[in-house]
Structures are given as C-alpha cells and as structure tokens.
C-alpha cells in the first residue's frame, strides 16, 4: 500500500496567548487527496504553513519523503494560501509571467489551458476580478506547477457555487495520483466529500479522528459531512 509522503510527530506551535498546535501526530498518505476539516482556529492553517516552510515550529518533527531530494523543498510544495496573495496591479498575463520566473516547474502552457477552462482571460486585471475569479486564478497558478505536494488552504471558502464546482472539477481532472499528493483544508465539505481519499478531523490544535474516507463511511455508515457534525459537537 501507499507510503506516507508527510509524517508529522509531536508538532507544537504557540502564538501569543494561544497554543495553536498541541503536539500533533499525523501521516499524509502518498498519491492521495487528504482533506483536513475543522472549525476556525483548529490549527489547520498553522500546521499547513509549517509543513510548507512558511513559519517555524516550536517543537516536533516534520518529515517529507520526497522522491527527488536534489530539488529545493520549496520546489516540491505548491502552496495555495487562504488570503489573496496576488499583486492587484498586475494583469493575469503578468501574474503568470511572474510565476514562471519564480518557479522552475511552472508551465505557462498549462496555465493557458486552465484559464480557458476557468473562463478567465489573460488581459484581465487582478484588481477587477471577483472573489470567485481570484479563487479560480489562485488554483490555476498552483496547478500549473508540477510540484509533488499541493497544499491548498481553504481554496473554496466564501466563493460562489459555480466557481467551487469548477475548482474541484479541474483539481480532480488534473490530479496525477502517481506523482502527486494533495492536502486540502476545507469548510466546504459538501462539494469536496466525494473527492477525498483520506480525512483528518482537527480541533483546538489536536487531531480528533483520521482515516480513509471510504473506510470511515463503511465503518460508521455515515457520510463525512455527517461525521463532522458528530465529531465537532
């Protein structure tokens, strides 16, 4: 069976006044789509940022079992932050060129293909894009890279259902399970439910439950959405 692409043990992180991670242990299986669910403030984002190397941990271990250790770690993780991190004064075309300069594995051909599918145009200014359009563009920029690990922090939050649908459709359509692992932190479980291989329930800096999504369904006779209602009661 699958190996783990990421192994986290006893991970701790404190921010002023709050222990965001209280010694988290978890494994992210390779070649799968792992969903991390949990209420605001559960520590999802903190953990994903530590894995991505964007913030430093206080204690614990994060092992990333990459195939190609020659490359710099940042080249193997494509991170989609929850906030809008795009330069507002640029056009989409300029943003794509910027990413091409930033990341060796960025494919502008791929980006153009996805723009079409996502109903976006090169000449559009980022400042004029709606929330849903920004969300779609953020995903395009991540999917246009061939990173081994995609980490998506709330890619569906607060956007219209049509955009959510498009985003999931292209995510699943482009997913290359032989060479890629995806971690998806999300509140919008209704749409994402059927695409998740593995689910991790997190609350207050701790893991409450984790497992293969279909095994959890078989064992509990409930959907992941129903389990969320139960676990986070």
């Amino acid at each position: 069976m699958n190996e783990n692409i990421i192994e986290v043990s006893n991970l701790k992180k404190k921010f002023p006044g709050v222990q965001a991670l209280k010694g988290v242990n978890l494994n992210i299986p390779e070649g799968m789509i792992t969903g991390i669910v949990g209420p605001n403030g559960s520590g999802k984002s903190t953990m994903l940022k530590i894995i991505s190397g964007l913030i430093v941990k206080d204690e614990g271990q994060v092992n990333i079992n990459r195939k190609n250790k020659q490359r710099h770690l940042m080249q193997d993780i494509a991170f989609l932050p929850e906030i809008n991190h795009l330069y507002r004064w640029m056009t989409i075309s300029e943003m794509i060129r910027f990413h091409e300069d930033q990341f060796l594995d960025f494919s502008p051909e791929k980006a153009n293909e996805l723009l079409d599918f996502m109903n976006l145009k090169l000449e559009q200014k980022i400042n004029n894009l709606s929330k849903g359009m920004v969300a779609r563009l953020k995903l395009i920029l991540v999917l246009s890279r061939s990173a081994e690990i995609l980490i998506l922090d709330e890619p569906l939050a607060g956007i219209d259902p049509a955009s959510r649908e498009r985003i999931l459709e292209s995510l699943i359509g482009e997913f290359d399970s032989a060479n890629q692992s995806i971690i998806l932190a999300t509140h919008e479980i209704i749409e994402a439910e059927r695409f998740l291989d593995h689910v991790i329930f997190m609350e207050a800096g701790e893991i409450l439950l984790e497992g293969n999504a279909d095994d959890l369904r078989a064992e509990k006779g409930k959907s992941i959405r129903e389990l969320i209602g139960e676990v986070f009661e």
């Binding site: 279909d214 369904r217 078989a218 006779g221 959907s223 992941i224 129903e226």
Partner: peptide, 11 residues
Amino acid sequence: DFNAAYPIYEQ
C-alpha cells in the same frame, strides 16, 4: 447519484 454515507468505491 452518489450516496455519501456508503463507500464510493462500492457504489
């Protein structure tokens, strides 16, 4: 028409 409460591979 998937039923989310039952393993999807079984469906």
